[in-house]
Amino acid sequence: MDEQKNGLNPFYEEFEVFSKKKEDGPLQYQFSLLAPNEEMAIVLAKENFFRREKAVDIWVVRRNAIRKLSQSEKESLKKLDKHYRETKGYADLNQRWRNFKEKQDNGTDEKKVEKA
């Protein structure tokens, strides 16, 4: 009802539209639309955003029901590197396995030489 306080036409409420393409897929954000209420929003969402695209489910959410991040909060998402909890922090493992493999192979060769 913030809209009415602003003196703007309450017909134009903002709804965010989400959908699922496949039964086992994630819900994805699509776009927003203006509608006077959620019943109308959902019936309009279908043809505005899924005329060609497939959807197995559609959700509409009043935008003012969503708590978003402020810009400061978004900046805080830019993380320092935390290598220790990501796979890329362990890029040396392959080489170390290879070293063991080589050692083993060489060892076998030495044995072969001794036998001969």
Binding site: N9, P10, F11, P36, N37, E38, E39, M40
Partner: peptide, 13 residues
Amino acid sequence: VREALGHVKTAVV
């Protein structure tokens, strides 16, 4: 029409 639906307060099920 816009005037009317701006005033539909309860979602009609």
